[in-house]
Simulated scan of single mutants.
Amino acid sequence: MLWFLIVLAVIASVLIGMYNSLVRLRVRVNGAWADIDVQLKRRWELIPNLVETVKGSAGHERETLQAVADARNRAMSAQSPTEAAAAEEMLAAALGNLFALSEAYPQLRAVEAFTGLQGSLDEIEDSVQNARRYYNAVVRDYNTKTRVFPTNLLASLSGHRPQEFFTLDDERQREGPRVNFS
């Protein structure tokens, strides 16, 4: 009888340990996604200032400015990592077109606010990239834990499902919008 209780206690301890590790990883996944969300919101808040600055020097480029605004709105309304990645690709492309205007309008490059906003956007892009890398690493660990035996049995019983990675399909978008003013 004592051996039975010891074996039962060991099994219970192992199950509790596996469950707690799944919960800890899921919390880390959620926290990592929140970090990405914070960085994306910082970028989204910067974009209207950038658009207004460009309007002052190249306001008749309404199609480009509207594309940026539309892409920003799509990115803000994305619900999942997959939707967010697709929307962020479109936003990065629209921002790239916006920055390309600085080649056509040299007076825009001379506007201090524009270059300051571009520098801020570069910093945010680096932060987004770092947050994306961390998120994907945590998702990898979590997804691995939910798929390996015997944790996969407990994961399926307790509702732990694999999470989506935050990936970019277009290789050009992996770097974000970059413009060289030299």
Results as ranks from 00 to 15, higher is better:
Leu2Met: 14
Leu2Asp: 12
Ile6Pro: 06
Leu8Pro: 07
Leu8His: 11
Leu8Ile: 13
Leu8Phe: 15
Leu8Asp: 09
Val10Cys: 14
Val10Asp: 11
Ala12Trp: 10
Ala12Pro: 07
Ile16Val: 15
Tyr19Gly: 07
Asn20Arg: 11
Leu22Val: 08
Leu22Trp: 08
Leu22Asp: 04
Val23Glu: 10
Leu25Ser: 10
Val27Asn: 15
Arg28Gln: 15
Asn30Gly: 14
Ile36Trp: 05
Leu40Phe: 05
Leu40Asp: 00
Lys41Asp: 14
Lys41Cys: 09
Lys41Glu: 14
Trp44His: 15
Trp44Gln: 12
Trp44Glu: 10
Glu45Lys: 06
Ile47Asp: 00
Asn49Lys: 07
Leu50Tyr: 00
Leu50Gln: 02
Glu52Leu: 02
Thr53Lys: 02
Val54Tyr: 00
Ser57Lys: 09
Glu63Tyr: 11
Gln66Arg: 11
Gln66Gly: 04
Ala67Gln: 11
Val68Thr: 02
Ala69Arg: 01
Asp70Glu: 14
Asp70Gln: 11
Arg74Leu: 02
Gln79Glu: 10
Pro81Leu: 05
Ala84Pro: 01
Ala87Leu: 03
Ala87Ile: 01
Glu89Cys: 08
Leu91Asp: 00
Leu91Trp: 00
Ala93Pro: 01
Leu95Thr: 03
Gly96Gln: 03
Asn97Phe: 00
Leu98Glu: 00
Phe99Thr: 00
Ala100Pro: 05
Leu101Gly: 01
Glu103Arg: 13
Ala104Asp: 13
Pro106Gly: 09
Gln107Pro: 06
Leu108Ser: 01
Leu108Cys: 01
Arg109Lys: 15
Phe114Gly: 01
Gly116Ile: 03
Leu117Glu: 02
Leu117Cys: 01
Gly119Leu: 03
Ser127Arg: 15
Asn130Lys: 14
Ala131Phe: 07
Tyr134Gln: 13
Tyr134Asp: 14
Tyr134Lys: 10
Tyr135Asn: 09
Val138Arg: 04
Val139Ser: 06
Arg140Met: 12
Asp141Arg: 11
Pro150Leu: 13
Thr151Pro: 02
Leu153Pro: 03
Leu153Thr: 12
Leu153Asn: 08
Leu153Trp: 12
Leu154Asp: 05
Ser158Glu: 11
Ser158Phe: 15
Gly159Phe: 08
His160Cys: 07
Pro162Ser: 07
Glu164Gly: 03
Glu164Arg: 04
Glu164Pro: 02
Asp169Gly: 15
Asp169Arg: 15
Asp170Thr: 13
Glu171Ala: 14
Arg172Glu: 14
Arg172Thr: 12
Gln173Phe: 05
Arg174His: 12
Gly176Lys: 02
Gly176Pro: 04
Gly176Gln: 03
Pro177Met: 08
Pro177Gly: 06
Phe181Ser: 06
Phe181Asn: 04
Ser182Met: 12
Ser182Gln: 15
